[in-house]
Design a protein around this nucleic acid. Structure first.
Lengths: 153, 153
DNA sequence: AAATCTATGTCAGAATACTGACATGAGTCA
DNA sequence: TGACTCATGTCAGTATTCTGACATAGATTT
């Protein structure tokens, strides 16, 4: 049947296409991360901490697009398994700054290589101009959606 | 703090941007669908059936990017509540073709208006050329990811 | 200074989606 | 024809995420 997903009007919907692309990316990432015993959210959390050490639970949650509660259970597991550390008491306020351990950094290294290969494949068939165009367009979509969301509370 | 999500290298990652855009779109859709008592998957299923009547459970699942099992429980609920109908026995094979009822169509109408407003907002700041560019680029990404996924089983 | 507002961390319960497994029908190939 | 492969519908159990709620710390306002 020559895999031809649903194709009447949905193919003309940018929203559907966006979801399809995101879904394909997630599936590809899961595919390369599974052998490493890592989920996408798991990886996202570690990557965020590598690039911005000391992020709080809530900040990590926003960065990984999950709720604080979900990130909290993940962080507890990561802390238990020795990938990250959090101070016993909050240095200021209630915010607990999280940091990668050596083990966490080592684990992240392998994952980064795997994920980068996926992203490279995704960028493969695109010219430099198309890439910068993709950035511009995605940012435009995000801004439009966020603005309207804030405008109507 | 002028909401500035995590922003070191991640802002230069197309994958992260794609996830961010998709997440923003989903949040916006949830926002307009919630007052109608409808989830995104719920709406997706109805929209698929409106455009391609007679789709099977498995086909709907692929179209809505969930598993057959998840779509099955949704379909059972939709059938119970009178939004869709499925024949008692399969006309051919095991495939049960699903169709919208009048109630389902009516319910979908309101949702479609709401969702279209979101998509319009998303397309708001884009020129016609940027839109066609967005289509081209998203399709390119999907194709690259799918090809590589099929190539390495 | 006091009150209000906002954001955070965390607990508990509910909803949702997923993995694993099974039987069945249809197409394929020897 | 018979064995094999593939896809489908469905059941059961698991896992993950979300919603709701609470107490608390800092910022803002009065």
């Amino acid at each position: 049947m020559s895999q031809d997903g649903p194709g009447v009007e949905l193919d003309s919907s940018l929203g559907y296409l966006l979801k399809e692309a995101s879904s394909a990316l997630r599936a590809a990432m899961e595919g390369v991360l599974r052998p490493l015993g890592m989920t996408v959210t798991h990886y996202s959390c570690l990557e965020l901490l590598a690039q911005r050490p000391g992020l709080s639970n809530s900040e990590l949650a926003r960065g990984a697009f999950v709720t604080r509660q979900s990130m909290n259970v993940l962080l507890q597991a990561l802390e238990r398994d020795g990938y990250v550390t959090r101070p016993e008491e909050a240095p200021v306020g209630k915010v607990l700054p999280t940091r990668l351990t050596t083990r966490g950094r080592r684990s992240l290294q392998k994952a980064t290589v795997a994920v980068r290969s996926v992203e490279d494949r995704m960028l493969g068939g695109m010219t430099a101009e198309e890439r910068s165009g993709a950035f511009k367009i995605l940012r435009s979509m995000i801004r439009s959606l966020q603005d309207s969301a804030e405008g109507a509370p």
